[in-house]
Structure formats: C-alpha cells, structure tokens
Design a protein around this nucleic acid. Structure first.
Lengths: 224, 224
DNA sequence: AATTAATTTTAGTCTTGTCTAAAAAAATAT
DNA sequence: ATATTTTTTTAGACAAGACTAAAATTAATT
C-alpha cells in the first residue's frame, strides 16, 4: 500500500502548475515553454527542466518541442491552489480591511499553506463565497470552476449598458485606477461613445462621464 | 542609500533564528551547535554552515567552538516570527474551530508569511490577544515578550493548589492527554499525594482524582 | 525548397541547504 | 598530565532550481 506523500508539490512546482493552468484556460491549446517562462519571469531552459519533472509526476503531458497539457490530476492540483488563493483574498478583504489592490502578493504566499482542514474551515468561516474580490470564481473542493459568462467592456456597442463583474488584470495600478474612477464590481457602465482612432471610449458611471483607454476597456469584464 | 531587502530571511534562516531564540530563553547561556541540530532535526555540520551565514547577517554572534548568542536584531526577528506563530494559533482556535493540539503544524507554516499589514490586521481582528491557546505570551510589535511567572506542577508541594496557565510541550499527544483528563488552561489543580518512587502525583481536577506521571507534571505550568 | 528566424532543448555552472567522513578542539576521565 | 570521549568544524559531495551559452528543432520567409 502506498503512503501518500505529505507535501506532494514544492513551492516551485505549485507555481508552475498554476501558471500552466491559467495559460491553458486562456488559449485552449498546448502551453508553450516560452509562454510559461514569460509568465513566471524565468528562462525557457529552466522551464524545460521543470516540465520534465512535472511530467514524471504525472501532472502534465509533455512532448519535446510541443509544449505541455495538464492531466486531470494536474488540473485538480492547480485548481486547488487557485481555490486557496481566492479564498484567502476574500478573507483579507472582508475580515482584515485589505483593499482589492493589496491582496495579491499576500494571497500568493498563503495559497501554498498545506492543510485541508484550514482551507475547509476558512471556506465555512467566510460563508462559502463563490467569487473573489476581483470577481473571479472560486473553485470548489473537487477542483471544479464555475464558468462565468462575460465579455470585455471593449466589445460593448455605443449606447449599450452593462454591469461590471470582473477584471482581467489584477495589478495594483489598474485596480487603483478603477477605484479612482468609481468603477467597482456590480456597478453599471454605459458606453456613450467609441473613438475609432485610438479605440478609447467615453462611458458613464454613476452619472459621471469618463474617458477610458483601450487598455482599460480591454481588462474590464461586463456580464453577458 | 541602502535599499532594504524585501524578504530579509529565508525559510531556513527563520527556523534557525526561532530555534536559537527558544534555546536561549531556556538556558540563558550561549547556544551550542549540537542543541540547535537536535532541535531542528539536522546535523551539527549543517548548523555550523548556517550560523556562519547568520553571523554574517548580524543576527547572532558566533565564536568557533563557543556556540552562538542572538544580537538585538536577531532577537527581534525571532520574536516577530513567534508573534506571528502565536497570533495564527489564536486565529485557528478562535475562528476556525481548531483544537489546541491541531494548530502547531499549520502555524509553523503561517508564521513565515511576509506582510506587516497582514499581521497587524490579524492582531486587531483577534482583539489584541495577549496569550496563545497554550498559554504562551504573544510578543508585541517591537519584539517584547511579557514574562509569565510560573512553575512546573511537579514543584507544587502536597496539599498545594494551583491554576494551570501553560504547557511546556505542545505535542498533540500531550495536549490530547490533558483534554482527556479535563485539564485545561485556567483549571484548578490540587496536589493530593506525591509518590517518591517514580515522582508521580495524585492530583484533583474538578473534583476528580487522577494519577499524573512525572513527565506530565514536568510539562504543565502552574501560576506562581 | 532553401534560408533565416524563432523556439526549445542540452550541457555545464552556480547557489542554497543539506549530508557524510575526517580532522580539530574542548571537555572529561584516568 | 595524559588519554579518551564528546563536540565542533572542515572538506567534499549532492539535490533542487535557477542561469548562460550553444546546439537542435520547428516555424516563417523568400
């Protein structure tokens, strides 16, 4: 009978799994070595080393020069890390007075704490939240993630109204911009004008007109 | 002008500092290489390597063959880790339904999370607790630890009564034994008999007589 | 199809933190 | 005071995870 390894994955391995998971849901294709390297701020050669190791551990399938794909085990493991990350984010915002632009770095550390009881109790303590402070769905215990129907603000037509339900970028700078302009999850946004020259928008939020650059409109999700 | 390193100490370095801190308060003398090795379940040669590194970082003073002593910086750093450990223990017990014998391993991980805001907010959220679930004092922000006056149950005389205020050993087995016998922090214990042959005691807790071995009596603190 | 460009892998090195075995120093015993 | 035991340090090795530089493979162009 096998004894299950206590700390199944190292910190590094977990970060690779998470990165590959995110890249895979973005592209629906095999994930390339370079893409992983860029996401993790490391070098392609380091990635090659690690994905060989992860392939040995059966969390992904790897063919030389062909990128990687997560196995079911790999997906579940990654989803569990993301579950922990997002639950901690909820905790930080709801219980410890963090704002949504402050949580990422701390959650990045907390997501690696190993204790099933801890995360289940935290889930209960927070009343089983379904979304994190950025509107992202929290995977359940089994690694299933609810699919959120959404589109980018950029894709709304002139005159259309939508409710902000998420962000594509969780960087502090972006989130602070949104705060400054009174844009938050649940707020209504109406596109008044679309400027074809630079793809910027004039939108109305809570009665105020503001100008929104293409980059901003491309990182803000509106309910479908 | 110097830029202060963000993650000043590695996981290993923090564990060494904590171990040395605990050994130093126990013995009031210089801490020996072997003692550190035993505490950390490692080898003396590894300890020598690490204490040289920590001496370079000015957190301890090291003289070949003479053991080590923490500097003020070293003490503060260690106290801060212990502060985090104990605050997390309070959180786990008070908010997440952990029992006092379940918290140690998880707190051992959580104590290494780097975020001053996190720990200050946690402190406030828990209403600035002064003791952890095992009765140990929680260091303040500046690394000061309140000295708790106490003595071992073993040192009570026949007929003496005392209030249980702490444990010397936080192992799950010991704490479960205490639970089983209704011994908890704040409970009164009276020594009825002392058996000289094996140093065991007959004590009364909540009206019940129980027999306590020397080892138990040597790990239970009574208020002074 | 052949050449160039980009991506990926290999080979070899480095750092951190650990280990074993052997040497050196200190403590203890005779 | 000398011999023995214990403790501590040194020397050399190893694994994980990262890096650089060079080689191999695939993709893109002409």
């Amino acid at each position: 009978m096998y004894i299950c390894q206590k700390n199944m994955f190292t910190l590094s391995e977990e970060n690779y799994l998470k990165a590959i998971f995110h890249l895979a849901t973005d592209s629906k294709k095999g994930v390339s070595t370079n893409a992983i390297a860029e996401k993790l701020n490391t070098k392609a050669s380091s990635v090659t080393d690690m994905i060989q190791k992860l392939a040995d551990k059966k969390v992904l399938v790897y063919q030389k020069y062909q990128g990687v794909e997560l196995t079911e085990l790999g997906r579940k493991t990654a989803a569990n890390i993301i579950r922990k990350h997002r639950l901690w984010e909820v905790f930080l915002v709801e219980k410890l007075n963090f704002s949504w632009d402050e949580v990422h770095d701390v959650a990045e550390q907390l997501e690696h704490i190993k204790s099933p009881k801890l995360i289940n109790e935290l889930d209960a303590f927070l009343n089983y939240p379904k979304k994190d402070p950025h509107g992202d769905p929290i995977p359940d215990k089994n690694g299933n993630i609810q699919v959120v129907e959404k589109r980018l603000l950029h894709h709304l037509k002139e005159g259309e109204l939508g409710v902000c339900i998420g962000v594509n970028d969780s960087s502090s700078n972006f989130l602070k911009f949104l705060d400054k302009n009174n844009i938050a999850l649940g707020k209504q946004i109406r596109v008044l004008e679309k400027e074809p020259f630079d793809d910027s928008l004039i939108v109305e939020v809570e009665g105020k007109k503001i100008s929104i650059s293409h980059k901003i409109a491309n990182n803000l999700y509106i309910e479908k």
